[in-house]
Design a protein around this nucleic acid. Structure first.
Lengths: 164, 164
DNA sequence: TATTGCAGGTGATGATTCGGGCCACGTTTC
DNA sequence: GAAACGTGGCCCGAATCATCACCTGCAATA
């Protein structure tokens, strides 16, 4: 058994073992598991950062700038990543018929397949968590989290997006 | 009001608007706020990644390897960062008297001051959240999260650390 | 009315910074 | 010697900034 004084010797400071760290560790673990399962399914060309695209792209057409806003990266970074993902065959970048400056980013068939696998995989990971912490507890956690995030004005909530 | 079909056009896939994303967005927002407040207090030489050190270092002496484990990076990466943070004056790196291979990483006075500011800042950020989502709700969220994380065997929990 | 001419949006490119991993190496300990 | 600790060098991925080119819509003007 440790005394309080001893404990203070160890983890004394604000950045450890609190809300921030819990969020961070859980989030990182989630990402690791998803990436690992993608590898298992043969997606060895997908890197974790690519979720910035696939998490923000549905079946409609979206522009580079819009994707960048959703993923909270610069338009340049998103453009570069999209170019690579196009090369890998997961998205197409066609010139927008209405506005020739812009490009329509769409999932290809291969991309849709990947997205569907992502759905399954996230469900699997969630099930792994549910097994450990209990389904009810996990549901409660997600409810708490959604409630909190809804009340913060984080301005990149999926509900507000409109594709074409 | 949107139809289900329309909704599916937008955010159809697994990586969006679920537990993973909620954790991620909340965590990122937390980090942004902390870094911003550090800047306000004049710590313009501290970058977000440095939390890997300050979140895992108390008042005791710790080795590079141990810090690397706690922060989940390689000891090379940690060593590089510690060298920089030493140059900035926040930690000292003295040769361990007992084992001449190893180095004792300690917070300097300046480092302790920073750590104390970190405590205040994280409290401030938490208060900002509490104001938006309600103190009770935030407490409940943290409790849910801690309960979940405790039950996962994430093997980098502060409780198990022992400094000297 | 028809034309011209910008302002501002959209995207590509290059240079740079930063974080971090891997390999190899020297040193110390056991 | 073998294993542990830390360092140096090299490379890659990610992300930014600054800049350039281009398209479009709109307004001022001849």
């Amino acid at each position: 058994m440790q005394s309080t004084a001893q404990r203070n010797q160890h983890v004394a400071f604000g950045l450890s073992n609190n809300l921030a760290r819990l969020l961070r560790e859980f989030s990182r673990d989630f990402e690791r598991r998803i990436h690992s399962k993608l590898l298992q399914r043969g997606y060895d060309d997908i890197r974790p950062s690519h979720s910035a695209v696939f998490a923000n792209l549905g079946l409609g057409a979206v522009r580079v700038t819009e994707l960048a806003v959703r993923a909270q990266v610069t338009q340049q970074a998103m453009g570069k990543m999209l170019k690579e993902i196009e090369r890998l065959g997961y998205v197409s970048r066609d010139i927008d018929s209405g506005d020739k400056r812009a490009k329509e980013i769409r999932l290809t068939e291969k991309g849709i397949q990947l997205a569907e696998d992502c759905i399954q995989i996230t469900a699997e990971v969630r099930a792994e968590y549910a097994q450990r912490v209990g389904a009810a507890e996990l549901d409660q956690l997600e409810a708490c989290l959604r409630n909190a995030v809804d009340k913060l004005d984080l301005d990149y909530l999926p509900e507000s997006w409109t594709d074409r």
